[in-house]
Amino acid sequence: MSADKLTLARQFIEAIPHAQALEMRFESLGDGKAVLSMPWREELVGDPRTGVIHGGAVSALMDTCCGAAVISHPETPAGTATIDLRIDYMRAATPRQRITARAEVYHMTRTVAFLRATAHDEEDGLPVATATGAFTVERPKGGAQ
């Protein structure tokens, strides 16, 4: 991935208001793969009794990570949007631990990218959640693709 494309992808994702609100940060990005993380925060807790982060926050992280992976793909899509995202929650995230999502494009057609993703906390072992998704592939206007 070119430095210009990487910068553009980072700026695009970092401009998303919910990504800012959830304090998402890039860990790595390129070649149809992305790793994003977000911190545990008390205002994101879904169960005050246990301190477990809300599944919606995990879902938003995984969705954004998948979109970043699409944007970073070598076929250089101009943009993307979620068509379908299935998330399976495997276990509660450990309270007070950072959540990291990893997404990878495993197949791309002219108009649709297919992805797999996982989310982990800082514990070893099972993922917090896994996902499969389909995302639009928006081609540059007037481009050869």
Rank of each mutant, 00 (worst) to 15 (best):
T7A: 15
A9E: 07
R10V: 06
Q11F: 01
F12T: 08
F12S: 12
I13C: 09
E14D: 11
P17H: 09
H18V: 07
E23A: 11
E23S: 15
M24Y: 03
R25L: 01
F26Y: 12
F26D: 03
S28F: 06
G32L: 04
V35D: 01
L36W: 01
S37I: 06
S37E: 00
V45M: 01
P48H: 02
G51C: 09
G51A: 03
I53D: 00
H54Y: 02
G55Y: 03
G55K: 03
V58F: 02
S59P: 06
A60R: 03
M62W: 04
T64N: 13
A68W: 11
A69V: 03
I71D: 00
H73A: 10
P74L: 06
E75C: 09
T76K: 15
A78K: 04
G79S: 11
G79K: 14
A81Y: 07
T82L: 02
T82P: 09
I83A: 09
D88T: 12
M90C: 15
R91H: 15
T94Q: 09
T100M: 12
R102S: 11
M108S: 07
T109L: 13
A113H: 06
A113S: 07
A113V: 11
F114T: 02
F114E: 06
L115S: 04
A117R: 02
A119H: 02
D121C: 14
E122K: 02
E123G: 08
E123Q: 13
G125M: 06
G125C: 15
V128H: 00
A131W: 04
T132E: 13
G133C: 12
G133Q: 01
A134T: 07
T136H: 11
V137R: 10
V137C: 14
V137P: 06
E138D: 15
R139I: 10
